[in-house]
Nucleic acid binder design. Structure first.
Lengths: 244, 244
DNA sequence: CGGATCCTTGACACATCTCAAGACCTGTGG
DNA sequence: CCACAGGTCTTGAGATGTGTCAAGGATCCG
């Protein structure tokens, strides 16, 4: 299977996690045309204010959505893993109010808005599935807003670790499980609203408290209940299973 | 004109600001059935985790969407003014991941999801308009995440003043204009992630700096360029005019 | 082997929080 | 009309979590 179709199948999995699609609709998703592009680490590949005409699917790696202050400080407003259509909202709001950067080397697949529009026209179910997926992203952001504004540094970092463990891991128990971790401490800071220096101290505290351990390019949850408690984490906002 | 239809017409104005609708579609919006409910100040009228079956349109007053930490601290993730469908996302995600409270006395109009679903089925343009409006809310939240994480207390408060001035005011020049201000300093703190005490000190600084003045139930922008500068404010994220 | 990037740690500064008390305002019941 | 209660605003003094600045160590890659 080629990379494009593999990426699309990941996205399809994500969509069917939350919406029920017919065979035709699934096929239509998998047949979406587009272009692959390999982005080197820490490159901005969608700029602020740009008029966007294609949506970016993350095939592998990690993409961050961010805003920026006048003096260049960044704040992540989303982290998109493989299978996420990072940019889906640009279909209805093509003027990018927010930019995208790669975190580590990232392979993306750019799908023209026109193609997605075509699907929206053909199937109301798909239209709703796209809308719903965008709203899950918004719910995640809403949770970040809460956590970053109200929890201590330890809570914020722990929360991000919990979230990523849930999104990366496919539902295994978390304890002791190693997962790939492309985030540098600087990126962690951009996400949690902390300085890299303080992220470092906070990670040390989590390590010494026996909650979680980040080494090199992997993250390992040592004590899930403890980490979860520090983060006040409750995975329901991620909507990782279909509602009834 | 009765309150319900008036509220719907405000919402219609909001929608047509960003999407182009036909006469039939406009009429369909204005004909939406529902129930009016007057909410007393500081009441929660949608609770966390609740299974929602009707969306809440704010007819008058102000509604806040918020999340809550374990020890009860609140963080606003949206403030909805008259004409906002505060809850539109609940049509595709009926399990409330976030709660709603009134800020000051608020009149809401509850519209059954089924009715909105019917419109989505009838018109792809409306479906897209709803999706688009939800994405504008998300863009606002994204801006809040940036501001609350990266700006000083003064910047955060100033930013909220700017935003509200733009959303309340219908595009007049801002200087010296008085606008209704139902937000208490506590609510301001819940929104900006500050304690009420520090909000108070920050408002004093803004007043003494000749930027803006809040008295009793009104807010007055004294020096718009200065306020805008303190807040690093750029109204484009609000999408108050149709994109091209 | 050299350079870039990332991580680690320490000492100190400061923005914001916490705690506490009092003033003001508004609606209510006697 | 007054007294009171509850909510809001205001201000002060001191505590603390996180930022800033600075330097050195680790790791990776060409």
């Amino acid at each position: 299977m080629n990379d494009a179709r593999y990426g699309l199948s990941l996205w399809l999995d994500r969509l069917t996690l939350r919406s029920t699609l017919t065979e035709d609709e699934r096929e239509a998703i998998l047949a979406l045309p587009g272009e692959l592009e390999l982005i080197r680490p820490n490159r901005d590949f969608v700029r602020l204010g740009e008029q966007v005409s294609r949506a970016c699917l993350v095939v592998s790696g990690l993409a961050g959505r961010f805003g920026q202050t006048r003096n260049g400080e960044r704040q992540m407003t989303a982290l998109h893993i493989a299978g996420d259509m990072a940019d889906l909202h640009s279909v209805v709001l093509p003027k990018a109010a927010t930019a995208l950067q790669s975190v580590g080397e990232t392979l993306i697949y750019r799908v023209p808005h026109a193609e997605i529009h075509k699907l929206v026209g053909q199937s109301r179910t798909l239209a709703e599935a796209f809308w719903r997926d965008c709203m899950v992203d918004a719910a995640v952001l809403s949770q970040w807003a809460l956590v970053n504004a109200r929890l201590s540094a330890k809570g914020r970092v722990a929360h991000l670790l919990c979230e990523m463990a849930c999104r990366f891991g496919k539902g295994q128990s978390h304890d002791g499980h190693e997962i790939d971790w492309p985030l540098t401490q600087t990126t962690l800071g951009d996400t949690t609203g902390l300085t890299p220096v303080h992220v470092n101290r906070t990670l040390r505290a989590l390590r010494e408290g026996g909650a979680a351990h980040i080494t090199g390019k992997t993250m390992r949850v040592i004590d899930w209940p403890r980490l979860r408690d520090i983060a006040e984490f409750d995975a329901r906002y991620l909507v990782l299973e279909k509602a009834d």
